[in-house]
C-alpha cells in the first residue's frame, strides 16, 4: 500500500485514539499497536504528533508523571474534531467501495 495512504490512515486513527480520552505518546502507540497497527519504529508517531500540534489539530498540556520527567498529554482541538469527522466519512466511503470491489472478486 502506498506510504501516503498509510500515513493518512494512521493520522485518522491517531485522532480517534486521542478523541477517546486525553493521552500521551506511549499510550497512543500502545492503543494503536493493540488494534493491529504494525510499527517499523514506535517513535514514528512523534513527528506526526508534532505536525498535528503545529497545525492546531491537537493541543497539549504537561503534567508530572510517576516515572520521572513531565509528561505531555494530548487532546483534540475543535479543528481536530472536524478533521476526525471528515476522516470517518471518507474512510467509510473508501472502505465501502474497496469491500465491494474485493467482494465481487470473491476475495
Amino acid at each position: 500500500m502506498s506510504s501516503q495512504l498509510v500515513r493518512g490512515v494512521l493520522e485518522g486513527c491517531l485522532l480517534a485514539v486521542i478523541a477517546e480520552e486525553e493521552t500521551y505518546g506511549y499510550e497512543i502507540m500502545e492503543k494503536l499497536a493493540v488494534n493491529g497497527f504494525v510499527f517499523a519504529k514506535e517513535g514514528s508517531i512523534y513527528p506526526l504528533l508534532l505536525r498535528l500540534e503545529k497545525e492546531q489539530i491537537i493541543t497539549s498540556t504537561q503534567r508530572p508523571s510517576a516515572s520521572g520527567p513531565n509528561r505531555k498529554y494530548y487532546r483534540l482541538t475543535p479543528e481536530g474534531e472536524q478533521q476526525l469527522e471528515l476522516f470517518r466519512s471518507k474512510w467509510q466511503e473508501l472502505s465501502f467501495a474497496v469491500n465491494r470491489i474485493l467482494g465481487k472478486d470473491g476475495v
Binding site: 516515572s67 509528561r71 505531555k72
Partner: peptide
C-alpha cells in the same frame, strides 16, 4: 526530547530495544 526520553524509558521497562523505538 523529554517525550522521547519518557517513551524510551517506558519501552525499556517493557523489554524493548532502542531500535524498536527509534529504528
Amino acid at each position: 526530547l523529554m517525550e522521547l526520553e519518557d517513551h524510551l524509558l517506558t519501552a525499556q521497562q517493557d523489554g524493548k530495544s532502542f531500535e524498536q523505538v527509534f529504528g
